[in-house]
Amino acid sequence: MAEKEFTAASFYRFLDQKKLMGSKCKKCGALHLPPRPLCGQCWGNEMEWFQFSGKGKLASFSVVRVGTTMFEQKGFSRDNPYCWGLIQLNEGPRISALLLHADLFRPESITIGQPLEVVFPEKPAGEGKRNPVTFRFS
């Protein structure tokens, strides 16, 4: 896997292979998720792949009733809302994800700090498409 470029395309290909992958700066050790080819902290340009456990805690969230066209086309609506949020991963970085198993009609019951884990796509997204990063309340 070392030959893969540190791009979004590689990140989503890994996700389809059931791996949550970021990059680690060989110079300063900073972890980057999503992966990036240039370290924003030390400008080092030598990276290695780093696999995240996919476990973390809820840092923030929202239950969305008015979504984008893309989410309307997935069937979401005012009566069929969805939840997305930020997860503080055990390894440090944060990631945005669609959140499954949230109590969508009692959002006040969702609490910051709740544990979450990654849910990998059931099947690859297909040519030119990307599966969204998805976590679930564990």
Partner: peptide, 25 residues
């Protein structure tokens, strides 16, 4: 971020909702 936020359902009200839930907590 069109790649990493819009893909998981971000809209502007829901981005500021993230700030709100974090501030509330």
């Amino acid at each position: 971020d069109a790649i990493y936020e819009v893909s998981v359902g971000a809209t502007f009200p829901s981005l500021y909702a993230q700030i709100a839930t974090a501030h509330m907590a």
